[in-house]
Amino acid sequence: MIALLARDLRLAVRAGGGFGLGLAFFLLVAVLVPLGVGPQGDTLARIAPGILWVGALLACLLSLDRIFALDFEDGSLDLLATSPVPMEGAVAVKALAHWLVTGLPLTLAAPVLGVLLYLPGPGYLWLVVSLALGTPALSVIGAFGAALVVGLKRGGLLMSLLVLPLYVPTLIFGAEVVKRGAAGMEVATPLALLAGITAGALALLPFAAAAAIRVNLR
């Protein structure tokens, strides 16, 4: 399992691995929104939590189809399925690798983009906390979506259609944490709910994703 994690991380950072593309996309969203909405500080400050969360979510979505599609094409997934590594574990590890190369950098970069969007002072802490808690859920839900479409030739667009509705609760609670945090309100409730969704998704979705992969391999 550690070997799988190390391999996925190594593949991600080598040329052609697409590391940093999600981050660049996130930056672009944060730059394009003020260009579209206008430079008024109060408007931007008000929409900043939502924009940052939606941007992070879309950036996450971009790289999802790489989780399994490449391994499916070159036959590694077949070989993994016949190896001693349980498919559930492989899914969990691959989701973790996806989070390390996508979710974690997004979380760390978000405060900088918050500055561009005039995010109010108390919001920064909660922005980082909510993304740190929420992006693992985005990765594992995305891994489930990627597992569903792994056998399809052009699964990318279909996967967005499948995954985005599943992202709704995470987005709502995540953005709510930042919104409340930025307004200086109490954040415990949405934060607990966000953590609950992440914990539930991490615990259960690898099983659903592994089942989907086995179906797709046969």
Binding site: F144, L148, L162, P165, L166, V168, P169, I172, F173, E176, T189, P190, L193, I197, L205, A208, A211, A212, V215
Partner: peptide
């Protein structure tokens, strides 16, 4: 599989939206 997972998330969304 999608229907089962989707059902759970649909219920979650319902509560999230209420919130």
């Amino acid at each position: 599989v999608l229907c089962i997972v989707g059902s759970v998330f649909a219920v979650l969304s319902r509560y999230a939206v209420n919130f």
